[in-house]
Every structure is written in C-alpha cells, then in structure tokens.
Design a protein around this nucleic acid. Structure first.
Lengths: 230, 230
DNA sequence: TGTTAGTGTGACAAATTCATGACAAAAATT
DNA sequence: AATTTTTGTCATGAATTTGTCACACTAACA
C-alpha cells in the first residue's frame, strides 16, 4: 500500500516536514522546489499523488494543476492543494482544475495523513487481468474461466464479474451499493436487493466445488469473500 | 457540544483570562500551571482539547506535546499552541509533534474561540476505517471483524458500531445521550435505557474472549471503555 | 439499616434483514 | 424467428436484530 508522493513546495522547511510525514506514513516522498522541477521529475516517475502548494514562484500551483490535468498521462493523478491560512485560495477554481482536496497551513500531521489516505483509498480497487487464486478457487480473467478443485465452474457474465471483484478484494466487506458501483458500473437503476439474488446464484454455482460458503453475509453491512467461516 | 479544555499556562493572569473565555464559550476549563500538573490532571479527566503554552518552566510545551502524541491514550487529543509575539515559535517543529493550530499572544477572545471551535469541529468524525487495537481486542472496520485473543467475536450491527465508537474514543466517559447521538445517529426516538441493554449485549459478546469488563459503568454519568478495572 | 436512584438482566413482540423460488422481460444464440 | 440464457424484481417465509418492559440487583446516602 505504499505510494510515491510528489511534493511541490518552495519553502524548504515545510517541504522537509511534509517529506517526514509522508515517510512516517509509509509512503515515499519525491521533492520538487518548483513546478518546473516537478514536471522534470515526472518524466522519470509518475507519482500516485501530488501535494501541490497553491502559491509557487514561477509557474504557480493552479497552472501546474491545469497542465497536468490536460495531459492524458497525468490527468488521473490525484492532487491535494496546500494553501496558507489567509492566503486567498479559490476553492472553486482549485476544484475546477481537478484538485481532489485541499489542506490549509498550518495543518496537523494527522490531518494531512488522513487526507492522503482518503485520496489514495479513493482510487478504485483495481481488477487486473492477472489470474487470481483464492483458497482453491482459480479465476482467469483472460480465458474467462473459473476452476475449483479440478471442476470447471460455469458462471454467467454478471456472476463472473462479481466473483472477479470479490477475489480482487478479498476479506473486505462490501456494501450492496459498492458492489453495484464496482460490478454493475454506471447502470445504477438497479435495486439493492438484486445483489442478493446474484450472490445466491454465485453461491449456487460455486457449490459444485464446495466453495459455496466462501462468500459470507455480514448482516447489516454487506458481503465478503473470506476463507474463515465465521 | 460542551468540551473539557485543559489549559497549560504558567502565568496566572493569562490562565485566568483563558479560563474565563472558555467558560463563556460554554466549555469547561481545567487549569494546570505546569506540564507536570497537566499530566497529573489527565489521569483523572481526559480533556477534549489542550491549550498549551509554548514556553513553560520545567518541561516545555513542545516536550509535553510530544509526550502526549506518543501515547496511544492521548494522541488523538487536539492541541492548540500558545505563543507570545516575538517569542520564537518554530512552526515546523510545532506542527511536527502534532499541534493542530496555534495562537499568538496577545490574542482576542474572539479569535481564540474561533480556533477552539474550529479544532473541536474538525475532530468530529473521528471514526476512521483504520483497524483499532485495544488491550488485546482488535476491530477492523474494513473486514468488519472483531477478534480478541484469537477468538472471533460475533456482533450485531449496533453492537459493532457501539464497540467501534468506544474503541475510537477510549478512556472517555460517554453519556447515554452522547452514545445515542454518535452510534444511533438520527433516530433519536430511542430511550436512554436502550443503551444499557446494548451495553449488556456487547459485554456478553465480549465475554467470549474475556474482555467483558473492558466496558465500565460510571454511575450517574455513562459508560467508558478502559483497561483499568476501577 | 433502610431508602432510593441508578443499573443489570431475561423475556418478548415488532421490525428489519436475508435467502430463496418463481417469473417475465431482455439479450444472446441458434 | 425460435430457442436458450441471462437479468432484474417481487413475494414469501425464515432468521436475526432491536427497542421496551418488568423486575432483580447495587451502590450511595441519610
């Protein structure tokens, strides 16, 4: 869960503090004293997150943000704006160019870390195309097949995506809304209860290899894929 | 929304002024003339916020802040640093140890109250998704699991939220009303005594791992989660 | 020692939440 | 065009959770 975080801040003391914080939070800081340096550094490493000072000498934060957001390669990188108290920060314009959040100086390390964490978490749980194995169940996204204990498991399209998502995010409880978001996608015209039905169908299909209770109900919360039975 | 505010300030006149302000703002001041006294007082009551003078005789403010922030019990308490004008306040180091804000003397009552209010508001949603551990009990919001001494503890939705809240705000006494607010949320059509019943259910569930008396009754006040048995 | 306000506890009915089978519309396949 | 598969919803019943009560118990105080 470690991430590269680009820190664009002209004041060395503040930058030092930010870097310290980031390190302590288990991430890796990349330092830039100006927007120009930042752009240079990004040719080497594309960061997972950018902490960007609103006011910078030369090209200011807003300009840099706009530039990054207009480039396909970098436009998905989340940005957290840093603003000094009293400094006039135009929240609307900041958000307009795609800043994901902003923090007012002076900030507490706790607050900053919370924001960083929140933004990083917001990155959608990714479903890669790599084969996944979990507790004797093997799912291969490319061949679109699922095998459990030498037995081929037949799944409908939705059940397949559902299982794929569960296996990519095991042990974690997902609410019905989250599942609709991640598995169904845009079509949010679907009732929550529909998830239940598909869960049942998936469980039913998995029962051929005895993996039926891999998917557990967490009452009042949602569903979870886990090996533990309680 | 009344809060206990610990005032650590060696100059009696300033302290008096601060206390007066705090009272007028509807909060309850607890006074300490030194860092040592402050630590003593905190054994009785864990404050919701600390106003801390940067310069103190003996252990200075920075040291005290660092000490508090390194203790799991107190590290979530927000701190506002008080600094005299001209006095050299190392902003970076202050923030480094986790001060949430700072105020320069002389300050106007209005400014101080505004800061206090802001800080208290900021800590409002204090229940994160991070796993919490307390005295051998481990609660993980993402997996929705509670484990105590290798044993899985089965909780209903409300009990889970209740425990989550207690673990996020340990060592602090919560009245029934507060619990209804924080754990039940909107549905305030619930009797105070209902809390008692849920506390009992929670205790009962926790007894599986011997953590039953982690939740203590404070007669006439409410409940508290604490490792101490008194 | 009694009195009393504040808590613990078991029981219970109402409310909520889930699992499941059925079914028709929509999509995909033949 | 006919057939098969997949999908979303619903109704129903089972299982769990929840809020209250009545009553037992405790600690504090006169």
């Amino acid at each position: 869960m470690s991430a590269n975080i680009l820190v664009v801040e002209d004041e060395p003391a503040i930058q030092e503090l930010l870097a310290l914080n980031i390190t302590q939070a288990g991430h890796h800081p990349i330092r830039a004293l100006s927007a120009e340096i930042a752009l240079d550094l990004m040719r080497e490493t594309i960061p997972d997150l950018i902490l960007l000072d609103w006011m910078l000498p030369g090209m200011n934060g807003l300009e840099l943000a706009r530039k990054l957001k207009s480039d396909a390669l970098t436009k998905n990188i989340p940005i957290i704006m840093l603003t000094a108290r009293g400094e006039e920060y135009d929240k609307v314009r900041g958000l307009e160019v795609g800043a994901d959040d902003y923090v007012t100086k002076p900030f507490s390390p706790r607050e900053l870390n919370a924001r960083i964490k929140a933004v990083l978490r917001r990155r959608a749980p990714q479903m890669t195309d790599d084969p996944i194995e979990f507790n004797g169940l093997r799912l291969d996204p490319t061949t679109h097949r699922v095998i459990g204990n030498q037995k081929t498991i037949d799944l409908g399209p939705t059940e397949f995506r559902l299982l794929h998502f569960f296996m990519s995010n095991a042990e974690r409880v997902h609410t019905r809304s989250q599942l609709l978001d991640k598995v169904w996608g845009d079509r949010v015209f679907v009732e929550d209860r529909t998830v239940d039905v598909h869960i049942r169908r998936l469980r039913n299909a998995l029962s051929v290899s005895g993996h039926e209770d891999l998917i557990q109900t967490v009452r009042g919360a949602g569903y979870r894929l886990s090996a533990q039975n309680s």
